[in-house]
Design a protein around this nucleic acid. Structure first.
Lengths: 193, 193
DNA sequence: TAAAATTTAGTACCAGGTTCTAAAATCAAG
DNA sequence: CTTGATTTTAGAACCTGGTACTAAATTTTA
């Protein structure tokens, strides 16, 4: 009962479609030297949708990535929060956060987690970042979980509307990012975040 | 010769397709209360391709983004780039970038534009942010166009693998953000961005 | 060599269009 | 009001890249 030729062909078919999802059944007949019906039977068995469906799925995926990525109001999940004192958030580095070639997270995502947390920890209606001094200590890679810890520093006299927040981000034991944020409190003003 | 209804309809059509590229002509007839032929004439006049072509283009764009990394990794649209010298990018603040209550942009988006540009302007295979010193000069609001200008500073001797990039972001004439970035050049190392 | 599995062929049908021709409705003035 | 232009509809033929289904031909294997 060895039906290798069929299996082999189906494996090839999977590969062909994988590295060119825009191929039509027609083109596949040429490459695999079988009839179009065979191609279609194979696709059925393998659960591979037709060309148009494949394109639709890709288009949809890319479409709601654009919508859903920036939707995250706060980057990272806040797991502990003591207003005006400290806070902790967790953020896992995924495909969409890294340079695809290297798997290294783009800096602004790591920054975004820290910035979000710094703003969240300030107990105020609108808190906006005024300035920041940051350092990327080591690069963060795909799959790593970043744990950011924020501490609000006691206001050195005269710091009326501003609060200082220090944020340290760790992967495991290792510190990967450190930032000093100055965050505006809401005093109705028109300043940065 | 005022033909407003037609123009108005075409504008609506553009908008409808923009915020749901997956709409068929059929569905558009319902929403615009005109015949399908009118929809098609309008699409022709406006140069809007049919549904399938739109999906194909989205799929292709997202596909070769995965293959040809560099462009997607930039927040904002780069309009001018002189490697190792300077660069300009434009980024429009939209709904998804602001605090919904206040319409003020979240800091990390403004940072992301600057960071992306600072990394892009460095003529190197992998450039990663090492540190940054940033200041949000005034808050940026929904709908505003941020124009970021990056200048690579001459390496003060001994700056082997590091480059200094200054970025200034403007809305119109006004500077809204300023940052000094230190960017690692690829010398194969494992450090932040 | 006969039953089972596989491959090929062919037909009807579908969505979501394009292209083309032509009629109907609407408008803008003279 | 009527005429000429513009705009809107209608309809038929055709296209791509399929699905669904039936059936015959071929190959495999027991």
């Amino acid at each position: 009962m060895e039906r290798l030729p069929k299996k082999a062909r189906q494996q090839q078919l999977v590969k062909l479609i994988e590295d060119n999802p825009f191929v039509t059944d027609q083109e596949l007949t040429r490459q695999l030297k079988v009839s179009i019906q065979t191609i279609r039977l194979d696709r059925m068995e393998l659960g591979i949708p037709e060309l148009r469906e494949r394109m639709k799925q890709m288009a949809e995926r890319s479409y709601d990535q654009v919508r859903s990525l920036p939707l995250h109001e706060v980057i990272g999940e806040i797991v502990d929060l003591q207003l005006d004192k400290s806070g902790i958030s967790i953020f896992e580095i995924r495909e969409e956060h890294v340079f695809s070639r290297t798997g290294i997270a783009r800096g602004h995502h790591v920054f975004a987690q820290a910035n979000s947390l710094a703003v969240a920890v300030i107990n105020d209606e609108i808190a906006l970042t005024f300035s920041a001094d940051i350092r990327f200590i080591r690069s963060v890679h795909l799959g790593e979980k970043c744990i950011a810890k924020a501490y609000v520093r006691p206001p050195s006299s005269g710091g009326k509307g501003k609060a200082k927040v220090e944020v340290f981000t760790y992967v495991g034991e290792e510190m990967v990012f450190q930032g000093n944020f100055v965050v505006y409190r809401s005093t109705g003003d028109d300043n940065a975040n």
